[in-house]
Write a protein that binds this DNA or RNA. Structure first.
Lengths: 195, 195
DNA sequence: GTCTATACCGCGATAGAC
DNA sequence: GTCTATCGCGGTATAGAC
């Protein structure tokens, strides 16, 4: 018979991760103490160590989860018939996914330098895999003669930087809806590759 | 008669700022201790406080200097005859200026959250002034019917994010020269505004 | 202007009671 | 599984000798 209630251990662990994510994003990993995280969750410091090995593991798990989610979600996109459609789809997917997770995005790009070397290598590999999937899309379009790009690697960097930038200013309920933002950026992206 | 030698106070102050810039960029403001900065410069901790009020002032001065330099340099660009030329000029200027100061760029965008409110407001105003000068350039091009842009504010955000992204991967002596990078990005920028 | 020495605090992490 | 209490370290900043 399946368990129907989550144990308090599971929810405490989850709440610790949520609090850490919010605090790390707001103040930075190094600036946040384990005491602050405990206070945010409403437990004592010692309790944190029942749910995570140490502060470093907490950071690492958050980044890992974010990037794994990102790659999984990308994999689940329906296959596109042509490069133009694939690029539009990517643009909308990237903006939506990132705008809805601005805390995780922020720490995953900004706190890389606080990862120990082994953790850094693993997280960096995930990030590179994502960049390369966009680069492959651009290669496809160029090989089919649809995109006009002298260097698809640079173009991938350029487009990801441009699209991820949305997280720095977009706020729900602001001047523009997410759908409108996706349309405007989608237009610039299409034009920038020569469509 | 003018002084011909700089006092040791002046050079120590300068060296402290250089060391702080490098260390803050590498490890993050919160992760760097005043002891580390002193060691990097080769003085004792107490000496730092002869040249700066406290750690916060050190960070703030670095950001202030970077953004003031940026706006000054932008002001000194020769006037452009038309929007297309102005946009090309801006692209090259932005990439070159930022690629050559990756440490200052990094802390000026990443350590904003570590500024006390009053300092944040002043630094943020400088950053906004820079963004607005690009937006005005885009408005000009759109009003002249040369650029095809539905929202120049978003376009300015998008282009700055794209161009600043160069600092995350560009290294002198790498696969591409800075001039080539400027050309490739310049091409994407032109196309993205409809040229 | 710089150094030595130090005050005082908060940090990450752990031990042991419950 | 959580709390209380604590260890040992390193943090920012300052005082006073030279």
């Amino acid at each position: 018979m399946a368990r129907t209630r989550t144990s308090s251990a599971e929810t405490t662990g989850l709440r610790i991760r949520e609090a850490a994510l919010r605090l790390f994003a707001r103040h930075g990993y190094a600036a946040v103490s384990m005491r602050q995280i405990a206070a945010e969750v409403g437990v004592q410091v010692g309790t944190l160590y029942l749910h995570t090995a140490d502060k470093q593991a907490l950071l690492c798990e958050l980044m890992d989860a974010h990037l794994t989610d990102l790659l999984d979600a990308l994999d689940k996109l329906p296959p596109a018939a042509d490069p133009e459609t694939a690029l539009d789809q990517f643009t909308r997917f990237h903006i939506r996914f990132h705008a809805q997770r601005s805390d995780a995005v922020f720490i995953s790009y900004m706190e890389l330098r606080n990862l120990e070397p082994a953790n850094f290598a693993r997280v960096e590999a995930l990030r590179r895999a994502y960049e390369q999937s966009l680069q492959k899309l651009l290669d496809w379009g160029r090989d089919e003669g649809r995109f006009d790009l002298p260097d698809t690697k640079l173009a991938a960097y350029a487009l990801i930087a441009m699209l991820t930038g949305v997280t720095t200013w977009y706020r729900e309920g602001g001047r523009l809806s997410l759908d409108r933002v996706e349309a405007i950026y989608g237009d610039m992206v299409r034009k920038s590759v020569g469509l």
